[in-house]
Every structure is written in structure tokens, then in C-alpha cells.
Computed example of a mutant assay.
Amino acid sequence: MTGRDKEILVEKALEARRFSYVPYSGFRVGAALLAKDGRIITGCNIENASYTPTNCAERTAVFKAVSEGILDFEAIAIAGGPGLEPPGDFAPPCGVCRQVLMEFCDPDRFLVLLCKGDKTWKEFTLAELLPLGFSGKNLEG
């Protein structure tokens, strides 16, 4: 992945925030998921008055991709913060989103870019964000 590829992913995550449905928290999150074939699938967080059915931006992007037959991923950029202003801090994925990523991504190779509104980012592997993660390999005899 080139630096420009990462910049594009960050820009797409920031753009995806505008579609967030967040009438309760006001905390908008956008995600841009890069498939190994080069496609970028975006997602936003979608809240629900009952809270539990709320879906995070990262899972929205993964579920959109999987529902279209895309199963191989290289990276994701995540941007989150309150209101419509560009986010001033990094917003890491929640534990449930980390686990969903673990289902579909190689934890040692999959990149997670946490980005701010000024288009800067911090870069981690999924393994760094979810050490000792549980996957289908744990279920093998």
C-alpha cells in the first residue's frame, strides 16, 4: 500500500462520516475498507433508540462488502468524532468491530488507520489492536 493509497482511504473515511445516523450520541464515525482487489467500501455508524441494534461504521463497511461477495481485505481507515466538525482525535474501533475484522482479515497483515480531520493518521495492524484474537483457526482440531 502506498502513502497515496492510505491518503485516499483516510479521505473516504472522513467523507463517510456525513452519512452517519446518530440522533442520540451525535458521535459520527466513518470507515473506508480496502478490498484486496482495490475496491473501497465505506460505512457509517447507524444508531437505534434501543441501543443494542446500533451498528458501527466498521461493521457496516464489512457487512456491505461481504454481502456483495467481497471477502479479502487489506486495510481500513476509521474517522470518528462528535458533531459535523472534522474529528480532532483518533477513534479506535470497539471490541466487537475488532472481532468482526478478525473473522475476515489476517491480523498480522491487515492495516487499521485511525485518522483525524486534518488527514493525519496512526497506523496499526489488527494484531496490535487485538492481541491474542480469537478466529476460526481456534476452532480447528
Rank of each mutant, 00 (worst) to 15 (best):
A77S: 05
A77F: 03
L113C: 05
S67W: 05
F63R: 06
G81N: 07
G95L: 12
P87S: 08
L101D: 02
R59M: 11
E74R: 12
C94V: 03
D72F: 10
E85F: 08
A79I: 01
D89C: 03
P107N: 12
P87G: 12
R98K: 15
L101C: 01
T60G: 08
C97E: 00
Q99A: 14
P87A: 12
G80R: 02
P92K: 14
A57T: 04
G69H: 05
P107Q: 08
R98A: 09
A65W: 02
F104D: 03
V96Q: 14
C97V: 03
A79L: 04
I78K: 03
F110Y: 08
F110H: 05
F63D: 07
L84C: 01
I76Y: 11
I70R: 01
E85L: 14
L114S: 07
E85R: 13
T60M: 14
L114P: 05
S67Q: 14
V62L: 15
C97F: 02
V96Y: 12
S67G: 12
L71E: 15
L101K: 04
P92Q: 07
L113A: 07
I78S: 00
V96K: 15
P82K: 08
V100N: 01
A57V: 03
G69S: 07
P86K: 06
C105A: 15
A91C: 15
F63W: 11
I76M: 14
L101G: 03
F63Y: 13
G81H: 06
F63E: 13
V100K: 02
I76A: 10
D89F: 12
G69K: 04
D108L: 08
G81C: 09
C94T: 10
R109K: 15
M102I: 01
A61R: 03
L113D: 04
K64V: 01
I78W: 04
E74D: 15
R109P: 00
C94N: 10
V96G: 11
L114N: 07
D108V: 04
L113I: 02
I70Y: 05
P86C: 06
A61S: 10
D72E: 15
E68W: 09
A57Q: 04
R59D: 13
M102H: 07
P92A: 15
C105V: 08
K64N: 13
D89T: 13
L111N: 05
D89W: 11
M102R: 05
A65I: 09
M102G: 13
P82I: 09
P93D: 06
E85T: 11
P87H: 09
V100M: 09
A61N: 02
L114V: 10
R98F: 04
C105F: 08
D106T: 11
V66F: 03
T60R: 10
P107V: 06
E103I: 13
E85Y: 09
Q99T: 13
Q99P: 01
D72H: 14
L101H: 02
S67L: 11
A75I: 05
F90D: 07
L111Y: 06
P93H: 05
V62P: 01
M102K: 06
Q99Y: 10
L84M: 13
D72A: 13
E68L: 14
P107Y: 06
D106K: 12
P107C: 02
